[in-house]
Amino acid sequence: VEGREEGSGVPAFEKDPLELTVEDVYDISYVIGKDLLKVSRVGAEVSDLQFKIVRVLEMFEIMVNRYNLSLEELRMERDNWKEELGRVVAEGSNGNIIGPDKLVIDLKDPNRPRFTMQELKEVLQERNQLKAQLLLAQEELQLYKSGVMPQPQQNMENPPSDPPLTTEESIEHKDEKTTIQKL
């Protein structure tokens, strides 16, 4: 390359060795090759030295090339890990798994899980009892309306219990107030 400066004026010589590219190696080889030509007339020792220098430059080329490839691989690997980490963190903040059988809960999320299974069970039981009472009350109301029953009367039916009693069990208990009150 004609425009290049000679000697240590070549930028490749000034670079951080870890940042060298194969092109830099070619520049260095070009400059050294030109210098070698100037002394080539001197003798057999010089041509032997020339040969060795060319060989070292080839080795240099291979090493820089290899180094850059591994660097590229490492960068790609690092980027993959970054992505993976981001994904896991995002999942974690949604309340998903971050380890075997573990959960991360975002306390700012209004839809975060708040109740335990046990609490849900209890709420359901209470709901079922209230529903059974409502059904009973509706039937009694129906009776007053139809005039079949002159006075308030309890226990038309055994309401479902939680978990419900079998027919036999509920009949056994018919003298008690209601299954609900009993519970």
Binding site: P160, P163, P164, T166
Partner: peptide, 26 residues
């Protein structure tokens, strides 16, 4: 004659609750 009809959840996460109601079914 009365029939109690128990509607259970099909979702896996409720299975432990729903299965407590299987008992004593005709």
């Amino acid at each position: 004659y009365s029939l109690q009809i128990w509607d259970t959840a099909g979702q896996e996460k409720f299975k432990c609750i729903a299965s407590a109601y299987y008992r004593g079914a005709q």
